[in-house]
Structure formats: C-alpha cells, structure tokens
C-alpha cells in the first residue's frame, strides 16, 4: 500500500479538528484524548504527535491549560476549549463536511458513470501539456 492511501496520512490533516471535537465535551487531558481517539478507531496516537499539537492549540488561544493534582499520578494538564476554539471547531466541522462530501462524490462517481474499481486509461486530450 502506497503512502497516498495510508489513513495515518489522512489523519494528520484532521487530527486537530478531532482533538477540538473531544474537548467540546469538557476539560480533558493528554492521555484521555489519546485514549478517546484510539477508542474512536484512529489507532494509537503517540505523545510525540499529540502534545506538540496541544501546544499549538494553546498558543493559538483555542484552548486554555491548567495543571491539576492527579489521582494517584503526579498531576494532569487539563485543556479547556475557549470561545475562539469553539468557533474554530464549528468552522472546521463545516469545512470538513463540505470537503469530505466533495471527496466522496469524486471518488464514488465518475463523469461516465463507470465503475472506478476498473482501471481506465487517461483520455489523451486531458493529459497535462
């Protein structure tokens, strides 16, 4: 399987939106976000991927962060969605829905109504000059 059809490559573009969506339910922390993403079927998101993203969200004022005493652990950094974050989430969701519909339409139908599972040679007139 080539890198173009790797779901992990697709996830890279929408991970921020998925994380914001999880935070919409209330304040949460890194490990809980990773666990929720895994439960949703996104696979294991490593700390090295998740925390730089959380740092970017915090820097962009989409979330606020607060350290709280952990239950049996050393402590947890809780992230809370700000009003700007909520607006960004709503905007991102609308953008994603429009984009995914466009991709879905493009992938599931063709201009001739052919079955796309069958390879078809490119039309000479459509080739790039």
């Amino acid at each position: 399987m080539g890198t173009i059809t790797q779901p992990s490559e697709w996830l890279r573009g929408v991970l921020g939106l998925c994380v914001l969506r999880i935070m919409a339910a209330g304040p949460t922390y890194g490990y809980a976000i990773a666990a929720e993403l895994a439960e949703a079927g996104f696979g294991e998101i490593k700390g090295g991927t998740l925390y730089p993203l959380l740092a970017r969200l915090e820097k962009s004022d989409l979330v606020t962060a607060e350290w709280r005493v952990g239950e049996g652990g050393p402590g947890r950094k809780y992230f809370t969605l700000t009003e700007t974050g909520r607006a960004e989430l709503a905007h991102g969701l609308a953008q994603w829905q429009a984009f995914s519909t466009r991709v879905d339409n493009h992938l599931s139908t063709s201009d001739t109504g052919d079955d796309l599972s069958l390879p078809r040679p490119r039309h000479p007139s459509r080739s790039t000059p």
Binding site: Y29, G30, Y31, K46, G47, G48, Y51, A55, W67, G70, G73, P74, G75, R76, K77
Partner: peptide, 23 residues
Amino acid sequence: GGHLGEVEAHCAETGETPTEAFG
C-alpha cells in the same frame, strides 16, 4: 519544566518510557 511535566504525566498514565512515547 511544563513540557517535561507533560512527558512525566503521560508516561505515568501509559507506563511507557519517554523514548517509547515521545521518540
């Protein structure tokens, strides 16, 4: 220290080493 705190908190929850979780 804040970033290192995140690493410690995450490793405490997952049981991973910093190299396993953060590379």
